[in-house]
Nucleic acid binder design. Structure first.
Lengths: 343, 343
DNA sequence: CCGCGCATCTAGAACGTTCTAGATGGCAGT
DNA sequence: ACTGCCATCTAGAACGTTCTAGATGCGCGG
């Protein structure tokens, strides 16, 4: 209380203001604010009180500038993809307890991946977590020379040396879906694929080999799809126009499956009575009661955790083995699959 | 070329490295990097070349620290709300041409609004744009004493003096929807509301007064809903269980309407043959071909533009009038509404 | 030949924090 | 009383930028 109030006029309060008010040095305030060792209980309390009174808030930018660690994880994601936004939630949940902040940078119509990544780097992120990146692998490799890079859900072949990959075993997921449908008695199982989207090639391949192993080569049918509802709807209309229709469909992802589902319902085709539908991802979409979609679950919290963990391990200089981290998928049976109808 | 290569060992290159390599002062490099006046064409070129060669990237955090302007707009949004993510796209589109960066801070299960806002302030955002904030109005008023605050889609009554509000004329939107349905010949129009969600009260009131003006008081029916698909599905099941069913439904938003739609389709109730459905927001969801939802469009790009514009105006010290900025809604007629069936 | 203005460039101090190295003071052991 | 140690505190230099104020050099009118 010896110092006068020292209200900072219109500016944001700084350590110096707090120090003046508490009658101690700036360094001591810094210690208290960081919760570091080296301050007595008495002064700790006095400093905190002063800070509270003038509404002090630490300035992360200055903090980062000084300590060469920023403890900032840059995340690039697509605003329109539920799979991405669900992952972001998992990333927050994994990063913050580990003492890392998350900087988000969205890909939007007016804002490409390049721009999104530039913004993260300019912000001094220590590592990049890219959700389903679509830039060329060489670009990723180049980025990885500057900062640890984790690609989530996008497989890279051949794997650039320094880029970590965290993904679901997409092929295995497709296999589980096919096995489930075949066990129900289906034989004509079609696949609506994801084209060149991350993961699509593996799912397509998994579908094909699973069908083959069941001796169903003649029923293999891959329809061009995509990752949006419209893509699924379009493929479903193609199926409706055919004379002999498959009794089950494995869609590239949940959004695509939702489009399929809706088109069938509109056309009066009962699901799962006349045709079964399986999605992929297990985003919040599929869990909604009125969609109730059987789907191949990606373990989103686990993917997020691995991605964050790997990024942090690299930052801590741990010698992490090269190579992908692959998470097992798990089929979640809900209401859109059942035995084939009389046919 | 007089200076030696000067490669920065393992660190990130700085202005000083570029300066050394180009054989000029740090200040001059700064000038060139900012594109400011005061450098000759020759040295400009030389500096840019040097920067390019060593892969220099400006450090926004240091930049911000020095110049007291951060030109950073903080945006709080909900990852799960398409309305929010669509708005974020609009905010990027409006802010970046105006020379402002956007810092995103998501609200997630592990991360409340308080935490989201704290992170933005610690990052030195100059203004806050909050999408559908649900914290108490007093908290917003308190924040506004520190930094300009714009509340998007959340009306505040009584309006705290310094908080700007940008919103759609929700009541008017509900009126348009009712007018449209009545013009088609509907009389029994029900409303599935949004409870305490931002905007819900206005929409409810707009629905009521519109019904009244058409002399349809006896058909006023408000069902408890919410903002998710599940909420809509639940309300739809309630309707299905009733003996006399309304011939049209106005849902709180598109997600809610989607749930309604889906439940009706599953129950074999034809839309719009037996019942018409209207949504609200015109998010990308409703525009999808297979949903094709008649909905009250919020002019999302315009809302984003106004919110950004208002924040910037405050920062530029313009004397902006207090009071809300209200954007007109516009009914978009698609495939889920039609004349009532024979009944 | 002087002085002036202009264009170009630079030194050095900020910005708000953290970190290093050391100062201070109290207390126990000799 | 001296020494040494510990706990507590502080001065001052970083960090990478921008900004202010001035230095430098050059052309040109008088």
């Amino acid at each position: 209380m010896p110092a006068t109030p020292e209200v900072p006029d219109g500016k944001r309060p700084t350590l110096a203001h707090v120090a003046a008010r508490a009658g101690v040095s700036v360094a001591l305030v810094s210690i208290v604010m960081r919760g570091a060792y080296g301050a007595s209980a008495a002064s700790r309390e006095r400093v905190l009180k002063a800070a509270e009174e003038i509404g002090y808030r630490p300035d992360t930018r200055a903090r980062v500038l000084r300590s060469n660690r920023s403890r900032l994880l840059g995340v690039q994601f697509g605003l329109r993809h539920p799979f991405h936004t669900d992952l972001v939630e998992g990333i927050y949940a994994a990063a913050e307890p580990a003492g890392y902040q998350v900087a988000l940078s969205a890909v939007a119509p007016t804002r490409g991946e390049r721009q999104a990544v530039e913004a993260l780097l300019a912000d001094r992120c220590e590592a990049l977590v890219l959700l389903g990146p679509e830039v060329p692998a060489t670009r990723l490799a180049h980025l990885a020379t500057q900062v640890p890079v984790v690609s989530v859900a996008r497989r890279l072949r051949p794997a650039p040396p320094a880029v970590d990959v965290v993904r679901t075993a997409d092929g295995e997921g497709a296999r589980q879906a096919v096995d489930h449908l075949v066990a129900l008695g289906h034989r004509a199982v079609a696949h609506i694929d994801g084209g060149r989207a991350p993961g699509a090639a593996d799912r397509r391949r998994g579908y094909r080999t699973a069908m083959h192993r069941h001796g169903l080569d003649e029923h293999i049918q891959v329809l061009p799809g995509g990752l949006t509802e419209d893509d699924g709807a379009r493929a479903a209309r193609t199926l409706l126009a055919e004379k002999t229709r498959p009794s089950a469909v494995l869609a590239f992802n949940d959004r695509c499956a939702t489009g399929v589902l809706d088109t069938f319902l509109r056309a009066g085709v009962a699901v799962p009575g006349e045709i079964s539908v399986v999605g992929f991802d297990d985003t919040s979409l599929s869990r909604l009661a009125h969609i109730d979609l059987t789907t191949v679950a990606q373990d989103i919290p686990r993917l997020a955790e691995l991605a964050v963990g790997r990024a942090i391990a690299r930052l801590d200089g741990e010698a992490v083995p090269d190579g992908e981290q692959v998470v097992a998928p798990r089929l979640v049976v809900r209401g859109t699959t059942g035995p084939p109808g009389t046919d």
